[in-house]
Computed example of a mutant assay.
Amino acid sequence: MLKLIDVTVKYGSSTALHSVNLEVNQGELVVLLGANGAGKSTIFRTISGLLKPVSGQVAFMGQSIGGWSPDRIVKAGIVQCPEGRNLFPEMSVLKNLTLGAYIHRKDKAGIARSLQNIYELFPVLYEKKEQPAGSLSGGQQQMVAIARALMARPKLLLLDEPSVGLAPLIVEQMFKTIEKINRDGTSVLLAEQNAFAALQIARRGYVIENGHLVLEGARETLCDNEEVRRAYIGA
Score class of each variant (00 low, 15 high):
97 L>C: 09
54 V>C: 06
3 K>S: 14
123 P>W: 00
190 L>A: 02
87 L>P: 11
228 V>E: 09
219 R>V: 06
195 A>K: 08
5 I>L: 14
132 P>W: 06
3 K>G: 01
110 G>Q: 07
116 Q>G: 02
26 Q>I: 04
86 N>D: 11
177 T>A: 12
195 A>I: 03
170 I>R: 03
158 L>C: 11
217 G>D: 02
11 Y>F: 15
138 G>Y: 14
174 M>V: 14
121 L>R: 13
90 E>Y: 13
53 P>R: 04
43 I>R: 07
78 I>M: 08
26 Q>A: 08
144 V>G: 03
2 L>E: 05
36 N>L: 10
212 H>W: 09
231 A>Y: 00
234 G>I: 13
185 G>F: 04
230 R>S: 14
43 I>V: 14
166 L>N: 03
150 L>K: 09
125 L>K: 04
162 P>E: 15
229 R>P: 13
95 K>I: 10
62 G>A: 12
210 N>T: 15
158 L>T: 07
126 Y>K: 09
139 G>L: 07
33 L>E: 05
230 R>C: 05
131 Q>L: 12
123 P>Q: 05
184 D>A: 05
76 A>H: 10
147 A>T: 12
65 I>Y: 04
97 L>N: 03
97 L>R: 02
74 V>P: 01
76 A>L: 14
59 A>I: 09
167 A>G: 11
211 G>Y: 01
83 E>I: 03
49 G>C: 06
120 E>Q: 15
209 E>Y: 08
116 Q>M: 03
11 Y>C: 00
71 D>Y: 10
119 Y>H: 09
159 L>V: 01
153 R>C: 01
224 D>Q: 15
67 G>S: 12
92 S>C: 06
49 G>S: 11
62 G>R: 12
36 N>Q: 08
206 Y>V: 04
29 L>Q: 01
98 T>S: 07
17 L>S: 06
18 H>I: 10
47 I>W: 00
67 G>D: 09
183 R>G: 01
88 F>C: 00
101 A>C: 10
175 F>S: 01
105 R>M: 01
181 I>K: 03
145 A>G: 01
110 G>T: 15
211 G>S: 12
180 K>A: 13
97 L>P: 03
115 L>A: 13
156 L>P: 10
225 N>C: 02
